[in-house]
């Protein structure tokens, strides 16, 4: 599906879905920093909610699980990069559903792969890997937008200094509310645009990849998850706490046998 096909071919129901996904992306962008900061804007929860909204919860898990493991150490403590992981997760899941492609999940339950590159094994993780790369790029693309919005907050906040002269409380409330609306709009617009970009460009590009690249993509979800977990071990230390980590590894292996 090319972007032209996508725009020409989408029905009212598809546009409604894009609208709902944009709304979800806007709400999650709010949740990330501006309002409430529940756990729902984390990549796994965001992708799962998007999957449920699209009627494909398994797709939400297929993208959300490795993305969450890779991004688990993205903490707001001394970070220099502020990506938009929740909006990216929604866009990738929504875009894949809109393009009719549902990848396999990490480690088991298999979905149908739409438009897989020649040579990529059926029911593999390749599409999940491709979507994961797309989510990482979209999240990185969100960084300058978040920074631009924060610069705008600064401009607005400085307008609030007038209240220090005239004591107008309503102005402060208005500025704060304007910032909330700006965040919501940023999330909704980038989320909607992301859904269309993934459906119209990213997923169709997957089918055009050489077979060898398709095969390599199947490694991505597993390796990204492993690197993310490695980052956890690096930060929290394994050597001094090998007992707790070891107990976890054994329990995880047993869980792997059972599931």
């Amino acid at each position: 599906m090319t972007p032209v096909d996508l725009v020409a071919g989408v029905t009212g129901a598809h546009w409604a879905l894009v609208g709902w996904l944009s709304l979800l992306a806007g709400l999650l962008a709010l949740d990330e920093t501006a309002f409430a900061q529940t756990w729902l804007s984390q990549p796994l929860a965001a992708a799962t909610l998007a999957g449920l909204l699209c009627g494909h919860p398994e797709l939400g898990l297929a993208v959300g699980l490795p993305l969450q493991l890779a991004l688990v150490m993205n903490l707001p403590v001394g970070q220099s990069l502020t990506g938009e992981a929740s909006v990216a997760a929604v866009a990738v899941v929504g875009g894949a559903v809109l393009a009719g492609s549902v990848p396999a999940a990490l480690g088991g339950f298999h979905g149908a792969v739409g438009g897989a590159p020649a040579g990529a094994p059926a029911g593999d993780l390749a599409l999940a890997g491709w979507l994961l790369l797309g989510a990482a790029l979209l999240s990185l693309a969100g960084h300058p937008l978040v920074q631009a919005e924060r610069r705008l907050h600064l401009v607005w906040m400085l307008q609030g200094r007038r209240t220090l002269r005239d004591g107008s409380l309503a102005r402060v409330d208005r500025i704060h509310g304007r910032c909330l609306v700006a965040t919501m709009l940023r999330g909704a617009v980038t989320g909607g645009a992301g859904v269309l970009a993934v459906a119209g460009l990213w997923v169709p590009a997957y089918g055009a990849l050489p077979g060898a690249v398709g095969r390599a993509l199947a490694w991505v979800p597993v390796l990204a998850a492993a690197l993310g977990l490695g980052a956890v071990f690096e930060r929290y230390g394994v050597a001094r706490h090998w007992g707790w980590v070891g107990a976890g590894v054994v329990a995880g292996w047993v869980l792997g046998v059972l599931t």
Binding site: L106, F233, G252, G256
Partner: peptide, 20 residues
Amino acid sequence: AGLAAGWLLRHAWEGSAQVG
């Protein structure tokens, strides 16, 4: 994190065919 790593290793062992 150990639990997730153990699960990942188990499925890497089982699912190696998926990546060839």
